[in-house]
Write a protein that binds this DNA or RNA. Sequence first.
DNA 1: CAGATTGGTCAAGCTGCTTGACTAAATAGT
DNA 2: ACTATTTAGTCAAGCAGCTTGACCAATCTG
Lengths: 138, 138
Amino acid sequence: MLLLGAASALVDGINERVRAGGFTDLRPAHGFAFVRLAPDGATVVELAEHLGVTKQAASQMADELVRKGYVERRPHPSDARARLLTLTERGWACTRAADEAAIAVLQPWADALGPAQLSAVRTALSRLAVPGRIRPTW
Amino acid sequence: MLLLGAASALVDGINERVRAGGFTDLRPAHGFAFVRLAPDGATVVELAEHLGVTKQAASQMADELVRKGYVERRPHPSDARARLLTLTERGWACTRAADEAAIAVLQPWADALGPAQLSAVRTALSRLAVPGRIRPTW
DNA sequence: CAGATTGGTCAAGCTGCTTGACTAAATAGT
DNA sequence: ACTATTTAGTCAAGCAGCTTGACCAATCTG
């Protein structure tokens, strides 16, 4: 219960701050998409795998993010079937805002814990967590 | 990310074991309902508040649990408007199975950590978590 | 270079939730 | 005591996000 409550508070806290920063048309789920798109972009199929949904659902979310100005669909450099989804400047701005929000939420917690206990928690969590699985949607 | 992954792994692990125990017609969301109904039962409105959804949605879930044989609707002892939702014997059996599953998932983790670090993690999480908020549904 | 695979879209449908409107029982205000 | 408001619950309609199924075009394989 503590674990779920903490995870929930973290996501809500980040989301709230991102919204307060002017990105009111995004939900936490979009953040998970940004994580995959941020480094070098991704195809719809790759995004779908990352989010754990069908490619149709991922394509739908991509449509929404394009419509809202966070993502661009550009031709894939090496595969004429595929299209590369990349962040626009606004998409990058949102990603930066989310990073800052995450730090702002976690910082007081890290301060209160001290570095030794923090790393203990970190290793403890990594033992329980399975790498690939991020998205709940229960 | 670790926190989300751990929470997700925990929920999935419990759900998987509960399903393996014969309760294949339940989702993790139902577990959150059982938590509120288990001690003494609850009304639809109380269940809705606990789950963070509208009373209509809670009523709908209650219907489903009644239909599947986990919950009973009985007249409320002190309020003729209300109906008290209580667990059936099957509901209690499922609750016990879930408790055992939770222990089974967490035990190896607790063993690996040791009691001192475990309580450190516990207090750390309780500092971040907000009591009421449990349900993500992002 | 035919056959199978892969990336993406279109279309239809479902599930879990929401808002809105309403009844009946309980409570509050004179 | 009696009206007015609140509260518990249901019925109905609608929506958002996801699914399955079918399909086309580009790519890979033998």
